[in-house]
Design a protein around this nucleic acid. Sequence first.
DNA 1: CTGTTAGCGCATTCAG
DNA 2: CTGAATGCGCTAACAG
Lengths: 341, 341
Amino acid sequence: MTIKEIAQMAGVSSAAVSRYLNGGYVSDEKKEQIKKVIDATGYQPSAQARMLRTKRACLVGVVVPKINSESISRVTAGIEQVLSSRGYQMLLASTDNDPHKEISYLKLFESYPVDGIILTGTVITGEHRKFLKESKVPVVVVGQYTKYANCIYHDDYGAGKAMGKVAAALVKEDGHVAYIGVTRDDKAVGVAREDGFRAGLKSAGAELAEGYVRKSEFTMDSGYRAALDLLEKERDVSVISCATDTIAAGAIEAILAYRKAQIPSVSGNSGTRMQYILENSDIRVTGFGDNQFLKAVTGGIPTVHFGYKTSGIRGAELLLDVIERGEQIPIEMKLGFQLVE
Amino acid sequence: MTIKEIAQMAGVSSAAVSRYLNGGYVSDEKKEQIKKVIDATGYQPSAQARMLRTKRACLVGVVVPKINSESISRVTAGIEQVLSSRGYQMLLASTDNDPHKEISYLKLFESYPVDGIILTGTVITGEHRKFLKESKVPVVVVGQYTKYANCIYHDDYGAGKAMGKVAAALVKEDGHVAYIGVTRDDKAVGVAREDGFRAGLKSAGAELAEGYVRKSEFTMDSGYRAALDLLEKERDVSVISCATDTIAAGAIEAILAYRKAQIPSVSGNSGTRMQYILENSDIRVTGFGDNQFLKAVTGGIPTVHFGYKTSGIRGAELLLDVIERGEQIPIEMKLGFQLVE
DNA sequence: CTGTTAGCGCATTCAG
DNA sequence: CTGAATGCGCTAACAG
């Protein structure tokens, strides 16, 4: 079904149909005829051909590292909110933390094309920088600092420092604080958060002892393995601070599993077992991100609330400003945090 | 940057460049020149203009009701796996459970266009059926049964029935089984799962008593409110079975909160409080979906494992079969389940 | 108000 | 092997 066919059937020119579709001048009479034909055929204009002409898609692409994450869904919720209120649609591309795929989806969006791109929380490689510098469509980066694009990021260092103090206060006498971090390629979560954490500990007169640090992926499973390794190898772990709440969930699982292994005689339903385990566990876990699911089922651990939804909102606004008003002045925006104990 | 400019700069025709890009006949000499110019300019062909010509995008659109869900992310992981292995990319559209948005994104994908669409788990309205019937691009539906498109769905009735038996076995003498379901507009989760559950109870000589049923949205928060209402209004609730693990997480939160309210004198850190609460709580919660996060931090509740990733894989394969091989025969596929206790 | 015309950037005939 | 020409479906100028 093309605009031409519709035009023929309605006995008008294709331009008239186009105008009808886009609110230009059409006499009421022709409007009627066109409407009739469109209703009858169920015609839908090709968005793509339109885009080829107009260079506008009313569409923005969002690249995310994974789909199943509360923090990311909060960001996208914020983005979607402002986008849909301003007549834009949002397309998501999930990269599964694969930098190669990330670039590939960025290019897809660029050449698709969309009007703008939001890139969220990930490691920024040379290829990324290259893309940001050369991209034909405006990009804003959310969750990481970069000087190659408008960006919105969180005060990860400050949050880490605050949590460091909390951990120091939580640790038992002759106990140790342990930390499960992520790759330092991630400047926000891997570097700022951990460095802040160490600074916070230090300011409270504590520190991360040798051997009490682990690296983890951004998954629960990886957090589980890291925590279990910690528990098996190091004595007197009193606090396990994790770089994300997801990792913290894995750590909690590990503590449950470890205690269960130590006390194999306890049996019965999992409720009973869990009671017993918790009763005899004095290890505290902390996280970052204020995951609501975790809070709900565990009653909550010390964590940090970041304004993820806000960063999505601001990010989308920034992007639309450059798309619609051609705003040129680069912007860096740093968002604060809130300690949740 | 257009193909024309590249052609000029390389001193060849645009057709030669096109052939170079798509692996047609080009002399080695011209290949060199073209390559040089492309490398120098960083030229990227417009995917859109190509699509306008070729009608192929190597792209499939996936419509999901929400982003932050383990089950959905498992489906998309399966889809992405087969797609990327066959040279396709995947675009996601999240509709936030809004049927209107769902249609709007379906239409976007249709006219964008993508080569195929996967629609996952949602209520299917008349508008949906209309779209499925008239869509120019192939669609497969995952997670719901429909006769208007190829579909892959799960044995929700069987799973419900199995869980009904589990609940019947769990319930204490003179205790009651309660059920928190979802809208019956959702034929899979709202109807099949609940009807199966009732059948399972019945076959074990139990039933859902008047007043022990609630409706919830697909969110933890909504599950929390439903469960709290249940606890406040009904005596002797012994088992709370929930239509999804997410709702179950909310129910667990509600039980914690309810007990806490009953025993306000208990204080101290949340660990202590939680111990006490669990010790004195004899209410069991069950779910559906085998959420790993929930399992990790609680030690696990009775639930059902569906082959979500498998359904994603099969769905994508089905779709590619019709895209690439023009497979015409309609397919309905029903996937089994596994009880997790 | 309306129809005709000329491309948007590309892939594909079809002669050379 | 190569380039000139055509058109994918649509919108924007333009002349009626």
